[in-house]
Nucleic acid binder design. Sequence first.
DNA 1: CGATCATATTCCTATATCGGCATACGTCAA
DNA 2: TTGACGTATGCCGATATAGGAATATGATCG
Lengths: 113, 113
Amino acid sequence: MARAATTSDVFNAIAEPQRRELLVLLRAGERPVTELAQELGMTQPGASKHLRVLREVGLVRDRKAGKQRLYGLDARGLRPVHEWTGGFERFWNESFDRLDAYVQDLKQARQEE
Amino acid sequence: MARAATTSDVFNAIAEPQRRELLVLLRAGERPVTELAQELGMTQPGASKHLRVLREVGLVRDRKAGKQRLYGLDARGLRPVHEWTGGFERFWNESFDRLDAYVQDLKQARQEE
DNA sequence: CGATCATATTCCTATATCGGCATACGTCAA
DNA sequence: TTGACGTATGCCGATATAGGAATATGATCG
């Protein structure tokens, strides 16, 4: 089997650095493709393809505005990623010396995921 | 060019669902490969390969324990992902074309509860 | 040493990219 | 309609997978 499709879920979609850059740029507001491409130093077809992936996983929405097509952020899909990583928060705040204590705690409530 | 290597960064490493499952499982403590593989219904070589990727991006560390090799979580690498997604937190509840107004609505609604 | 258990690596196949280039499509203006 | 502009899509080549099977490496014990 090959790698999963980038359009399969948000985790795959944001694995691409340029797509992450696109998302960051879109926090400033809606933008047409050409502007995004230019600002990130990518070609127009390149930007279009990445935006397509982002749209297919729901991280981006598009809207026609005359000749242009404005892309805008829909960051709701990033929330699950934030929450999933947040499930590890206590592990990066604690030194490894004290991890064992947490491990014991977790062993009791171990059927969470 | 193809997609960047999974070993290049954490975003790519956690794009794989089985690797995420491994990480979740490791929150309960160190485990040998075979146990992890069995619990997740994967083959031993499959588990070994995924653990290798996780180790190369630093999300997992291993330690010899006799015949076995115990894998343990090192979740510090997940923090950048958490923080990156956190940068979109205020957009999660965004109404696509009227962010500011919607944010105000939410703030008010929250206070009225 | 030889046997056995635990884990890692190699070889293989099928597939999903990502980027570049050319081009098709869609919309507006004259 | 024709042309110009903005955007999307199709095709290509090169590469990095993920999974399966077989095998190699490593460690322990009798």
